[in-house]
Structure formats: C-alpha cells, structure tokens
Simulated scan of single mutants.
Amino acid sequence: MHIWAQRFNVDIRDFDIAYYIPSVTMGTGQFLWTTLKSPSSASAREALGGRLLTLDMMEAATPRPLVARIARAEQKKKAGRT
C-alpha cells in the first residue's frame, strides 16, 4: 500500500488500516477465538470482516491531476477499440 501511495503521490499518513480491518491488531490466539465465535456473534463477524474500503474512497484520496490523467488514458483506450 505504501508503494502505491508513493507511486501515485497520495498522502496516507492518517490512514488507519485497523479501522477497516480490525482483526489486523489481534494476536493469533484472539484471532482464532474470534473466528470460533463468528458463527454466533455479530461483533465477531464484524471484527473479522471489517469495513469496506471502496474505490470512491481511494479516488477521493488521489490527487485530481492523476485522476484526470487516468480518465484520459481510459478514454484513449476505449477510442482505440471502436
């Protein structure tokens, strides 16, 4: 993820992966125990599943000039197919 951020000049200093995937901070024992509880516990399933990180969120973090450059490249690619 850091390589992606450097390549596309995106500031991810405030990005917290644990917000989206809470299980990343669990130890092995806690992770296994949560996995065992998950069939009957909504909170355990949420801890394992985390929250969605959508493309819109990634696009919002990407500098506008880069988004415009990607859009132009996609348009050129589509124009070449027709």
Rank of each mutant, 00 (worst) to 15 (best):
T54V: 05
W4V: 14
E46D: 15
A71R: 10
W4T: 14
R81V: 06
K76D: 07
A47T: 14
P39F: 02
V24D: 08
I21R: 12
R51S: 11
T35I: 09
Y20K: 08
A18M: 08
V67K: 02
I21F: 04
R51K: 15
H2Y: 11
I12Q: 06
F15I: 08
V67D: 01
S43F: 15
L55Y: 10
R69C: 06
R64P: 09
T62I: 05
R64W: 11
K77M: 00
A44Y: 14
V24N: 09
A79Q: 01
E59P: 02
H2S: 14
R72Y: 04
D56K: 03
A68G: 04
Y19R: 12
A71W: 01
A61P: 02
K78M: 09
A5E: 06
L52I: 15
S43R: 15
M58C: 13
A68P: 06
R64Y: 10
R72T: 03
K76I: 04
I17R: 08
L32S: 04
I17A: 15
S23N: 03
K78D: 07
A60S: 09
K77I: 00
L52W: 12
T82A: 10
M57F: 03
W33P: 08
T35E: 12
L53V: 08
R72H: 03
R45D: 09
L32C: 08
R69A: 14
R64N: 06
P39H: 02
S38G: 02
G50A: 12
G27N: 07
A68I: 12
T54H: 05
A44E: 15
Q30A: 15
P63F: 14
R81M: 07
R81T: 04
P39D: 00
L66G: 01
P22I: 11
R81A: 05
R7Y: 06
A42N: 06
S43V: 15
G50D: 08
V10I: 15
M58H: 01
F15S: 11
Q30I: 13
T54C: 05
S38I: 01
G50S: 13
A71L: 07
T62S: 08
L36S: 05
N9Q: 14
H2I: 12
A5S: 12
L52Q: 14
S41F: 13
K76S: 12
I12M: 07
P65W: 09
R13S: 13
A44V: 13
L55Q: 10
T82K: 13
R64V: 12
T54G: 07
S38V: 00
R69V: 07
I3Y: 12
P63C: 13
